[in-house]
Amino acid sequence: MHLKHLLLIASLVLIAACGSKKEKEEVVDENLSETELYQQAQNDLNNENFGSATTKLKALESRYPFGRYAEQAQLELIYAYYKSQETDASRSAAERFIRLHPQHPNVDYAYYLKGLASFDQDRGLLSRFLPLDMTKRDPGAARDSFNEFAQLTSRFPNSRYAPDAKARMVYLRNLLAAYEIHVAHYYLKREAYVAAANRGRYVVENLQETPAVGDGLAVMIEAYQRMTLDELATTSLETLKLNYPDHPSLQNGQFVPLEEEDDNRSWLGKATLGLIESKPPLPPGETRANQDIRRMYEEARQEIRADLKQGEETREAVESADRKPKRAWWNPLRLLD
Rank of each mutant, 00 (worst) to 15 (best):
V194C: 00
R137Q: 10
S154T: 15
N106F: 14
L175H: 03
V194I: 13
P131C: 07
Y193N: 05
P139M: 10
R199A: 00
A178V: 02
T135F: 02
R123Y: 11
N147R: 14
Y179Q: 11
A150K: 15
E180V: 01
R123A: 03
Y161W: 14
R137P: 00
F129Q: 10
D164T: 13
Y187G: 00
D108R: 12
A162T: 15
P131G: 05
E148V: 06
S159T: 08
V170N: 06
H182M: 09
D133S: 11
L172T: 00
L130K: 13
R128M: 07
L188E: 03
L152R: 09
H185V: 02
V194L: 12
D120G: 04
R168A: 00
G200K: 11
F119R: 06
P139I: 07
S154W: 04
D144H: 09
G140L: 13
L125N: 05
K166L: 11
R168H: 01
K114M: 10
R143L: 13
A162H: 11
R190K: 12
I181V: 13
G140F: 13
Q151H: 11
R160M: 10
Q121T: 06
A177G: 09
P139S: 05
D144E: 14
A142M: 11
D138E: 12
D138P: 09
L176A: 01
L130F: 15
N198T: 12
K114N: 02
Y111L: 08
V170M: 06
R137N: 04
D164W: 09
E191V: 04
A196N: 07
D164M: 14
L152D: 05
A177R: 10
M169F: 03
D108Q: 11
L176I: 14
F129A: 09
L152H: 06
A177T: 06
R137H: 04
S154F: 05
A197R: 04
R160A: 08
A178M: 10
R160G: 03
V170R: 12
N106R: 15
E148I: 08
A165M: 09
S145L: 11
D120R: 15
Y179P: 01
A117W: 13
F149G: 03
R155Y: 08
R128Q: 14
E180H: 13
G115T: 06
L116R: 11
I181G: 01
A141E: 14
T135L: 03
D108I: 07
S159A: 08
R173S: 03
V107L: 11
N174I: 04
D122M: 14
L125Y: 08
N198S: 12
F146N: 04
G124R: 15
Q121D: 13
G140S: 15
V183M: 12
T135W: 02
K189M: 02
P139V: 08
R168C: 00
S118E: 11
L126K: 10
R128E: 12
R199Y: 02
K136H: 13
F149W: 07
D144G: 00
R123W: 13
D133N: 15
R155P: 01
G115H: 06
F129T: 05
T135N: 06
V183W: 06
D122T: 04
L188Q: 07
G124K: 15
Y111H: 15
Y111K: 08
D133A: 10
N174F: 02
H185C: 00
V194A: 05
I181T: 05
L188D: 02
L126W: 14
